[in-house]
Amino acid sequence: MSTLAASLSPPVAAPRARPRAIAVWLYAVAALILLMVAVGGITRLTESGLSITEWKPVSGAIPPLNAADWQAEFTKYQATPEYREINAGMSLSDFKFIYFWEWAHRLLGRLIGLAFAFPLLWFAVRGQIPAGYGPRLVALLALGGAQGAVGWWMVASGLVDRTDVSHYRLAAHLCLALFILGGLVWTARDLSALARDPAAKPSRLKPLPLLALGVLAVQIMFGAFTAGLNAGLVTHEWPLMNGRVVPQAAWSDALDDPFAIHFIHRWWAFAAFAAMMLLARAAKRAGDRRASIAIHVAVGIQILLGIATVMSGVRFEPALTHQIVGALLVAAAAAGAHAAGRRA
Rank of each mutant, 00 (worst) to 15 (best):
M1C: 07
L8G: 00
P11H: 13
P15V: 10
P19A: 06
A21E: 08
W25V: 00
L35F: 07
L35S: 04
V39W: 08
T43G: 08
R44M: 04
T46K: 15
E47S: 10
E47G: 02
S48F: 04
S51C: 08
W55P: 06
K56F: 07
S59N: 01
G60N: 12
I62K: 01
P63Q: 12
N66H: 08
N66M: 10
A72F: 10
R84M: 05
I86V: 15
K96W: 05
Y99R: 00
W101S: 00
W103E: 05
W103H: 12
W103A: 03
R106L: 01
L111Y: 05
G113W: 14
L120D: 01
F123E: 14
Q128I: 06
P130D: 03
A131H: 15
Y133K: 06
G134W: 01
G134K: 04
L137I: 03
L137Y: 02
A139I: 09
A139E: 00
L143Y: 02
L143S: 05
G151A: 10
W152T: 03
S157F: 03
T163G: 08
F179Y: 10
D190R: 00
A199Y: 10
S203R: 13
L208V: 12
L210D: 06
L216F: 11
A217L: 12
G223F: 07
G223C: 11
F225K: 04
N230C: 00
H236F: 01
P239Y: 11
L240S: 11
L240E: 03
N242T: 10
G243D: 10
G243Y: 05
V245S: 13
V246W: 09
P247D: 01
W251I: 05
W251L: 05
A254K: 03
A260F: 06
H265P: 06
W267Q: 01
A269W: 12
F270H: 11
A272T: 14
F273W: 14
A274C: 13
M276I: 11
L278H: 06
L279P: 05
A280G: 09
R281W: 15
A283F: 03
A286M: 07
I293L: 15
V299Q: 06
Q302I: 01
G313Q: 02
F316C: 13
F316T: 13
A319Q: 11
T321F: 11
I324V: 15
I324G: 08
V325N: 10
A337D: 01
A339N: 12
R342A: 13
R343W: 00
